[in-house]
Amino acid sequence: MVMKFFVDEKAHKLFRDLVDIKGSPFYKKDLKDVFIFSMALAFKLGKRKPLEKKKDIADISVFTESQLLLINSVAVATENKLEILLDEKKKFEIAEEYANAGVYILHEIVFESKEGVDDAIKILDKKISSLVISNEEKTNSG
């Protein structure tokens, strides 16, 4: 059976906005790219949001090897056990919950920045840098 990945029905529109609206950094990209970015962003922020009503958007075969590895790593890091690698369903459930929380943050960054969508790239860049650097600082001081 082909594995599917899901997003929350309520958040589906946000995913679509990000790939359909001109000016979005994800314009004309695949939904899976938005999925991975949202998942990574929320993982870094430690936010997860269970899906209320699932809506499938594609097969998992669309992910690249590196994207699948990210999904695996996020699941392992969250559960802190390697065995989760063998539980396909659980791995995706974790990834979906992060993506479900992340897409709201990403949508806000892209479409609600004061300077308009052109500025979204700068904000995204700053967000990545600040999240990574603050984490490194925490690690160094800790």
Binding site: F26, A77, V132
Partner: peptide, 18 residues
């Protein structure tokens, strides 16, 4: 670069943990 490699940086902790 931000879209394709940004997630790798954001998930660097997870990659290190695995």
């Amino acid at each position: 670069l931000l879209i394709t490699e940004g997630p790798l940086v954001l998930c660097k902790d997870a990659l290190e943990i695995i």
